[in-house]
Computed example of a mutant assay.
Amino acid sequence: MSKDIGSKTIGFIGLGNMGLPMATNLLAAGYSLRVYNRTLEKGRSLAEQGAILVNTPAEVVAPETIVITMLANDQVLEEAVLGENGILEKLSPSSIHLSMSTISPATAQHLAAQHEQQGVHYLAAPVFGRPDAAAAKKLWICISGNPAAKAEVAPVLDALGQGVFDFGETPEAANIVKVTGNFLIVSAIEAMAEAFTLAEKNGIDRTQIAELFGKTLFACPIYQNYGRMIAQQQYEPAGFKLSLGLKDVTLALQTARTSQMPMPLASLLHDRLMAAVAKGKGDLDWTGLASEMSEQAGIPPIPNP
């Protein structure tokens, strides 16, 4: 593999709420990009900045390529990698696939094995952060896989985030970390929903209690930023859809099942998220889970301004 990573082309697949600002930052950092998205129109702004838009995932692959995938779920990722016009058959031993999607550890393990058969390095590198953090290059990145490949992609990750946490060589390790992190976040959303609603039912301004806890006992971004959204009942536009939250809690439960451990809180959260999706709330931000508690407590939603 070349030591001059700046000479490599980056192939980028997936230009959703997270992928588009990430790809934009790579262009700003001086990388050459070949980009694919099922809806090509989403790549027009990148094309105006010099990126090459292609019509299939395979076409993002060029010699000395690092391919980044940032896709919604396991099925879409596997299709982009292993399906017709997928990237794997086009990748060479000098290529690296940097999988930044939130997927199941089992899928990561399967994809890593397929890459190994092809003689290609596969790295898992899921991220923590919302679209605004992606745009500001403030993502936290978890990574696992081959050490030499990790060293090669380090400058790329520096252009995307504010820190990288290395979880060793086991391909699926970073995805396990990502699943546990998203479980903790949605647990905090449910806890805040219940606490703020309890305060409101007893005549206390929910925005005041959110401010108190965000500045004192829980002075961290999740309680500050999500707490403000929950207190103000601002669930649109979605930075991360509630339906995707359901997907991630499902991944946590699947991983727990294969690990032979109970996750009673995850089971509760799964049912609450499922109920919200069934009511047509899947496109709300996942903080919209809090609306379920407001409804159950008989509190009407705040009218949209």
Rank of each mutant, 00 (worst) to 15 (best):
L98P: 00
I103N: 06
K90A: 14
T65S: 13
M70P: 02
A125S: 13
Y122W: 08
M70E: 00
G129K: 11
E79N: 15
Q117H: 12
A125V: 05
H121T: 14
V127A: 08
E64M: 12
S92Y: 10
Q117K: 15
S101K: 04
G129R: 09
A106F: 14
S95C: 07
Q75N: 14
V81A: 11
I66D: 06
V127E: 05
M100L: 04
Q118W: 06
L71E: 07
L98I: 04
V67W: 01
G129T: 10
E59R: 03
E89M: 12
I103R: 00
V120A: 05
E78F: 08
L91F: 00
I68R: 06
G129E: 12
I66Y: 05
I68D: 03
T65P: 08
V127I: 14
H97Q: 14
G83A: 12
H115A: 12
S104L: 09
S104A: 14
A108M: 06
E78N: 11
T102K: 01
L82N: 02
A108F: 07
L82Q: 03
E89A: 15
H121E: 11
I66R: 01
G83N: 06
E84V: 14
S95H: 05
A62H: 10
S92C: 11
L111S: 05
A112C: 10
G119V: 13
T69P: 04
S104C: 02
L82H: 02
A106E: 15
L111N: 00
P63G: 09
E59I: 02
E89N: 15
V61Y: 00
P126D: 03
A108E: 01
N73E: 15
E84I: 11
M70A: 05
A80T: 06
A124T: 12
V60G: 07
A62F: 10
A62Y: 03
E116F: 13
H115R: 04
N85M: 12
L77P: 05
P93I: 00
L123T: 08
L111F: 05
M100R: 00
T107G: 04
Q114Y: 09
A124F: 09
A108P: 04
A106I: 11
D74E: 05
L88W: 02
V120Q: 09
G129I: 13
P93L: 07
A108Q: 03
P105E: 10
H115E: 08
T65L: 06
I87L: 12
G119R: 11
G119Q: 04
T69L: 04
Q109C: 10
L91V: 02
I66F: 03
Q109R: 15
L91N: 00
H121M: 13
V76C: 07
A124N: 09
I66C: 07
G129C: 09
L98Y: 03
T65F: 03
L82T: 07
A108G: 01
H110G: 10
I68C: 10
S92H: 13
V81R: 06
S101A: 14
